[in-house]
Amino acid sequence: MDLTDVWFAAIAVLWMGYFILEGFDFGVGALLPVLASGDTERRVMINTIGPVWDGNEVWLITVGAATFAAFPEWYATLFSGFYLPMLVILLTLIVRGVAFEYRAKRDSVRWRRGWDRCLIAGSIVPAVLWGVAFGNIVRGVELDARHDYVGSFWDLLNPYALLGGLTTLALFVTHGAIFLALKTEGEIREKAGALALKAGFVAGMLVAGFLVWSQFHGGSGVSIALGVVAVVVWALAVAAIAVGREGWAFTASAVAIGLVTVTLFAVLYPNVLPAVDPANSLTTTNAAATAKTLRIMTWVAVLFLPLVLIYQSWTYWVFRRRIGVRNIPAGH
């Protein structure tokens, strides 16, 4: 295995970390109008992710920087070809971040409800579009001999990619509901557990269908095995939430989301962005940076990645306790 393969695997791990951590953030935001019966309960839900959501988004910044440095041709083609959906994702993430910070800046019901809508939209839209984007990456797109995207925006809205969007939305909603059942107490915890059980069954069927369809886009024995394990682990997460074991359920759902991500990368390898004409595909070889660049990146990652993991783990440890309406002070 050379450094191009190492960095392909590293980028897969970074996406896995992003989808696991930001996934429950998206799920909590999407469930605001479903689980919260008033402003106090909405504040409880938001407070469960308040200390960690911005740290979770760092994984997206890191994976973008790693792709730019390790596979510049992949980065250039991906972000220019998928410009409109990527712009929509960026704008919704910006609005979502502003909603977290501005929601409590004015003592007005109308003000808070407006920012709540931004938070909901900023959670649902990226959750769908990331699945659509990865569906197209695995399926392959129209690239010319210069590796420029020559398709249209509507080509990206194909059935397989749309199924990918529904799958990621269902996964993140269930993941978020399990997280809420783990982090809250009282009525919110009960409602979140019940919803996670129902959403988990739907997500399981979507995951199974999406991963089976994915195998027709370059699957191998490894990707098939990973897909089967992902579905089994997801079933264990649903079983755990059914018996009230929120900790085990959250662990299993996190592992399952990670396995789904790794399965897609296993289907993709050795391509990084397949083309309809295989001769024009971007691979780990023709899209990679120079060997010197990859060596420098490897040493930087070895030195700094442990520090990031230690810091983020410490953050989760500090804010590990359950919260409920009793923790929300009266008044604004």
Rank of each mutant, 00 (worst) to 15 (best):
M1A: 13
G200E: 00
P126V: 03
F153H: 14
N327P: 11
T283A: 04
P278T: 12
G81P: 02
R321V: 08
I328H: 05
T283Q: 05
G219L: 01
V52N: 10
A275D: 02
I137M: 06
G176D: 05
V231N: 03
W53R: 01
A170M: 10
W213K: 11
F304G: 12
S37Y: 10
W115S: 01
L143F: 03
A301T: 15
R146M: 12
V125P: 01
Y75P: 07
L264Q: 10
P270G: 13
W130D: 01
T284Y: 08
W74E: 00
T62A: 11
G140K: 00
M297Q: 15
M45D: 06
A192C: 10
L264E: 03
V202D: 09
G176Y: 01
I310E: 15
G114F: 13
S108I: 07
A254N: 14
T48A: 14
Y316V: 13
L169Q: 02
R320S: 14
Y149K: 01
Y316K: 09
I257Q: 12
V44K: 00
S108T: 09
R117M: 10
E22H: 10
A145N: 13
K105V: 08
M86G: 03
M86T: 12
P126W: 01
F250N: 01
T298Q: 15
E142C: 08
L309A: 15
A161M: 08
I137F: 03
F68S: 05
F319Y: 14
M16D: 04
G165C: 04
R43H: 12
A170H: 02
L182I: 10
R326H: 09
A266C: 08
L32F: 07
Y102T: 11
G227P: 05
L197Y: 10
Y316L: 13
V6Q: 09
T167A: 05
A65P: 14
M16K: 02
D54M: 15
I241S: 07
P278A: 10
A30F: 02
T40H: 06
G218L: 04
V125R: 00
F201S: 09
I49S: 02
A287S: 15
D107K: 09
N286K: 07
P159D: 08
I188Y: 09
L303V: 14
V138W: 02
F153I: 05
R96V: 02
L156N: 03
G164R: 00
W314I: 14
I120V: 13
L163H: 04
V202F: 10
V141W: 02
L157T: 07
A288I: 05
A239P: 04
G122Q: 00
V173C: 11
T284V: 11
Y269A: 11
F24M: 04
L259V: 10
L93N: 03
E142I: 07
T4M: 07
M86H: 06
W7N: 04
T284L: 10
E190P: 12
W154M: 14
L264W: 11
L303C: 13
V125M: 05
L119H: 06
G140D: 01
A196Y: 04
W314T: 12
N280M: 09
D144I: 06
S253N: 09
A208L: 14
P51M: 10
T251M: 14
W130Q: 03
I137H: 01
C118I: 05
L264C: 11
G186C: 07
F8C: 05
A99R: 03
S80F: 07
